[in-house]
């Protein structure tokens, strides 16, 4: 720092520029007060409040209950506690309820859309009916333990990768395509249903249980999504009813399963939101002139 004395008299001010070679009197590693002055911290951090996070977490609990209900139905069917005709009636009932919810919540009501749905469902059902005998003997040569293990694994994958904020099957007119992970999740659930169905005694059983699981896995997210979009209060009410139902069914099925589900529900809707709020204070976001600029218009390919 030998230039300090004449710095005041003749030295030009240091400028933040790259041109013109070395700035006289300053080293290239010169760092002054202007260093990092354009840095902005935590510019777009959203303050979350506990209640909102808790309400958001309800979607997850709700879907967890749906899966728990499906698993209970599978168990009862495998134990032959429900016969195939009851289940078929239940399937049809479920289909009609789902349909009406869909039609009531998506405005405007159109006959064309209804016709499209009916056509698709009938194709789908007849396809399943034809394939049922094949599924019936699909895993005959594999031992049951591996099948159960595989089913548990697939369901975990399904739950882990499921798209809780939207639905893999898009409501009509949705813009963006489903993500890869949500597709993997859907496929895992379908494979799990096929595996369960293949352990059943008759092919009518197979058809009925496949129809049931596919209905739930494909359309339940869509139905719940539509309800949520229609009214938040209805969504909460529906979720609460589902939770009560799932808990009571699992309570009758197995005590351990009940405790597990209850613990999971408490964890998801109370502990996790609290946790999220707590770790908010560690949020550290840096922005500055080095950031990649964002385009202010949509790129439509």
């Amino acid at each position: 720092m030998k230039g300090v004395g004449n710095q005041i008299r003749c030295q030009p001010k240091w400028r933040k520029v790259a041109y013109g070679g070395r700035q006289p009197g300053y080293d290239d590693n010169h760092t002054d007060g202007s260093f990092l002055e354009e840095m902005v911290m935590n510019a777009n951090v959203v303050k979350r409040d506990f209640l909102k996070v808790m309400i958001d977490s309800v979607s997850i609990s709700q879907y967890l209950c749906i899966v728990a209900l499906v698993v209970s139905t599978w168990t009862h069917t495998l134990n032959l506690a429900i016969d195939e005709i009851t289940l078929l009636k239940f399937d049809i009932g479920l289909l009609l309820v789902g349909f009406s919810v869909l039609l009531l919540t998506t405005s405007p009501f159109s006959l064309k859309l209804l016709w499209k749905y009916v056509l698709n469902i009938s194709f789908f059902t007849s396809g399943l009916y034809v394939l049922a005998p094949i599924c019936h003997t699909l895993t005959r040569s594999i031992c049951s333990d591996s099948i159960w293990a595989l089913i548990v694994f697939l369901l975990l994958v399904h739950l882990f990768l499921h798209d809780y904020s939207g639905s893999t099957i898009r409501p009509p007119g949705a813009l963006n395509n489903p993500k890869l992970t949500s597709n993997i999740s859907l496929n895992a659930s379908i494979v799990a249903s096929v595996l369960v169905a293949s352990r059943l005694p008759s092919w009518l059983h197979v058809f009925v249980i496949m129809l049931f699981s596919l209905q739930v896995f494909l359309f339940a997210p869509l139905v719940t999504f539509c309800i949520k979009k229609y009214s938040c209060r209805l969504h909460l009410l529906f979720s609460f009813a589902l939770m009560v139902m799932a808990l009571s069914v699992t309570y009758q099925l197995h005590r351990m399963l009940f405790i597990l589900l209850l613990a999971l529900l408490i964890f998801i809707s109370l502990v996790c939101p609290y946790w999220l709020i707590r770790i908010q204070e560690y949020k550290f976001e840096i922005n500055g002139p080095w950031d990649e600029a964002k385009l202010c218009f949509d790129i439509t390919e």
Partner: peptide, 25 residues
């Protein structure tokens, strides 16, 4: 670093002391 902005970026990313970083365009 090749510019002052790049220097700021590098210092933030790596936690190195800014006196060690030279700006040579």
């Amino acid at each position: 670093c090749v510019s002052h902005t790049s220097k700021e970026n590098t210092v933030l990313r790596s936690g190195i002391s800014p006196e060690k970083v030279f700006m040579v365009p």
